[in-house]
Nucleic acid binder design. Structure first.
Length: 103
DNA sequence: TTTATGACGAAAG
DNA sequence: GCTTTCGCCATAA
């Protein structure tokens, strides 16, 4: 895998996110041992060749908003399909769908 | 090795 | 509530 070890850890963490739940970049970063490495996580997702078995759509920003990217629309759609309620503005209730918090 | 970039985060104005 | 600034870590050139 072409990327560094950090990527593997990040992908692994993202895969642990249960269906119907979402997590944040910062949360993932923390799980892999990177405190301020939230950007690294996002960058890892950006490098996602789309063949990688990582539910990137379950990863949102710290405030529950979806990152402004071209596929944000698709991400929102996928989350909805999993039962995650996304506000019209693209905001997700982390205190409800967040993970591992959950509630 | 240094510089620049990035699906971020938190704080300050 | 929104925009701006700084901080963090890893990779690329």
């Amino acid at each position: 895998v072409s990327a560094g070890a950090a990527f593997a850890s990040i992908y692994a963490a993202v895969r642990r996110v249960p269906r119907g739940r979402v997590t944040t970049y910062g949360e993932v970063a923390r799980r892999v041992g990177l405190r301020g490495g939230a950007r690294t996580v996002g960058w890892a997702m950006a490098s996602l060749p789309n063949d990688r078995a990582a539910p990137w759509w379950r990863v949102v920003r710290a405030d529950g908003t979806i990152a402004p990217r071209p596929s944000a629309d698709e991400q929102r759609r996928r989350l909805r399909l999993e039962g995650v309620h996304v506000s019209p503005r693209g905001v997700i209730a982390l205190d409800r769908y967040g993970w591992p918090a959950g509630r």
